[in-house]
Amino acid sequence: MVAERIVEIFEQAGVTGCLHVVDLDEVGGGAGSGEPGGGREVALRADEQVVIASIFKVLLVLEFARQVVAGQLDPRERVLVTAADRLGGWGIAGCADDAEVSLRDLAYFAMSVSDNTAADLLLRRVGADVLPMLAAELGLPRTRIVGGPRQLVETMLADVGARTEADFARIFPTLPPERIRAMRMFDPAHTTSSTAREITRLLGLIWRDEAGPPEACGMVRGWMARQLFWTRLASGFPPGVRVAGKTGTLPGLHLEAGVVEHPDGGRYAVAVFVRARQLATRRIDVDLAMGQAARTAVEALRAG
Rank of each mutant, 00 (worst) to 15 (best):
residue 217 C to N: 05
residue 161 G to C: 14
residue 196 A to P: 06
residue 44 L to T: 02
residue 174 T to G: 06
residue 2 V to W: 00
residue 101 V to P: 14
residue 155 T to K: 14
residue 120 D to K: 10
residue 97 D to K: 12
residue 212 G to D: 04
residue 225 A to E: 08
residue 202 L to H: 02
residue 9 I to F: 01
residue 208 R to I: 04
residue 297 A to K: 08
residue 130 V to R: 15
residue 50 V to F: 03
residue 158 A to G: 15
residue 124 R to D: 11
residue 104 R to A: 15
residue 290 M to G: 10
residue 54 S to G: 04
residue 134 L to Q: 04
residue 262 H to W: 15
residue 157 L to P: 01
residue 94 G to C: 08
residue 134 L to T: 05
residue 251 P to E: 04
residue 105 D to C: 07
residue 52 I to Y: 01
residue 86 R to D: 05
residue 219 M to G: 09
residue 210 E to N: 05
residue 269 A to R: 05
residue 3 A to V: 14
residue 303 A to T: 13
residue 281 T to G: 04
residue 191 T to C: 12
residue 233 L to V: 11
residue 61 V to H: 08
residue 68 V to I: 07
residue 195 T to N: 10
residue 11 E to G: 04
residue 58 V to G: 02
residue 281 T to W: 06
residue 36 P to T: 07
residue 83 A to R: 15
residue 241 V to S: 02
residue 144 R to T: 03
residue 155 T to L: 10
residue 175 L to K: 06
residue 23 D to Q: 03
residue 123 L to P: 00
residue 42 V to T: 11
residue 121 L to N: 04
residue 55 I to F: 11
residue 113 V to L: 06
residue 221 R to V: 08
residue 192 T to K: 07
residue 221 R to E: 12
residue 43 A to W: 07
residue 168 F to H: 11
residue 248 G to M: 11
residue 237 F to I: 05
residue 129 D to V: 05
residue 72 Q to D: 14
residue 170 R to T: 14
residue 42 V to L: 14
residue 74 D to F: 12
residue 18 C to M: 13
residue 165 E to K: 06
residue 272 V to D: 06
residue 43 A to V: 12
residue 302 R to N: 02
residue 34 G to Q: 14
residue 135 A to K: 01
residue 118 A to H: 02
residue 38 G to S: 13
residue 159 D to M: 00
residue 268 Y to T: 00
residue 223 W to E: 10
residue 100 E to H: 05
residue 125 R to Y: 07
residue 254 H to N: 12
residue 176 P to G: 09
residue 133 M to V: 13
residue 70 A to N: 03
residue 213 P to C: 06
residue 225 A to K: 09
residue 149 P to H: 13
